[in-house]
């Protein structure tokens, strides 16, 4: 096992308790005196800060490079518009750039025969870093209405402290931002619920991460006597790392933005056991 692995906490759908698991793991590891960093990669809806209440130290704007055409140099050859896979350049009398569609790939500047394209940065959000006690904290906040989440997620992960266990709080779902989050994780912890929706979305997540060659484990949150998720895990050879019981007091503590162990000490043991299982999987 690496001294400082990166663990992504993900879930096929939102609201399964992914953030709850991530922040409690962070709190647990910190209490054990380990170096840990929580990185909120759910840049559309970063929520970890509401519970960890970090003291922010830095806020940096993150942008992606977008092209600017120098009309005086441009010969209107149209090559830039042709090469752009994202339809971010329209060839009218002169090329017209739509920065909000640009993925910042650099193809247009490379292809321009007369060097008429230079790049500037277009802000898509901010990365904030700080700490809560000994827990390192980093989060991205995507500007509302901004479609380009993956570059901001990459920027959050670039703030990773190599000398701490990294916990990536992933966005929900299985699309590109999730893949961007999980990409360099050593283990993916999938949090799910014992419901038909939970099981269905868990299976989608497994289908997403398996081709990436990611080791995975499952946490069944709000577990009860419905065993379909556990049966699925057994059939798919996925370790069940923990079954966290349905406890209305947990929902209430969460609703107030408090840590569960502060009120319900038996939950500390549950997370202790979960962490031991995670270590085994690593």
């Amino acid at each position: 096992m690496k001294a400082f692995p990166a663990i992504a906490i993900a879930s096929g759908k939102g609201g399964t308790g992914k953030t709850t698991v991530a922040i409690h793991l962070a709190a647990l590891l910190a209490a054990q005196g380990r170096a840990v960093q929580y990185l909120d990669c759910d840049v559309e809806e970063p929520n970890g800060h509401l519970f960890l209440k970090p003291k922010m130290e830095r806020s940096e704007s993150v942008g992606i490079p977008v092209p600017v055409v120098d009309a005086a140099q441009c010969t209107s050859c149209g090559k830039c518009a042709e090469v752009c896979e994202f339809n971010a350049i329209a060839m009218l009398k002169k090329p017209l750039v739509f920065p909000e569609l640009c993925h910042g790939c650099g193809a247009c500047a490379l292809v321009c025969p007369v060097g008429a394209i230079r790049e500037t940065s277009r802000a898509i959000g901010v990365v904030e870093t700080g700490r809560t006690g000994t827990i390192g904290f980093a989060q991205g906040r995507l500007n509302v209405g901004e479609p380009m989440a993956p570059p901001l997620i990459r920027a959050v992960k670039a703030r990773r402290n190599p000398d701490a266990i990294a916990l990536f709080d992933s966005p929900p779902g299985t699309s590109c931002p999730v893949v961007a989050t999980v990409r360099d994780a050593d283990l993916v912890v999938l949090v799910t619920e014992p419901t038909p929706f939970g099981l269905h979305d868990l299976a989608l997540a497994v289908d997403t991460f398996r081709p990436m060659g990611k080791p995975m484990g499952v946490v069944v949150n709000r577990a009860d006597d419905d065993r379909r998720v556990q049966d699925y895990c057994q059939a798919e050879n996925l370790p069940v790392l923990a079954e966290l019981p349905d406890d209305r007091r947990v929902a209430e503590t969460y609703a107030r933005g408090e840590l569960v162990f502060d009120r319900l000490p038996e939950w500390r043991d549950r997370f202790d056991a979960l962490w031991s299982r995670i270590e085994e999987c690593l």
């Binding site: 993925h103 650099g106 193809a107 490379l110």
Partner: peptide, 15 residues
Amino acid sequence: VEAGACEGCGVCVWN
């Protein structure tokens, strides 16, 4: 090309 990492921009293809 790493699975899941390609954005499909075509830069590598043309170059």
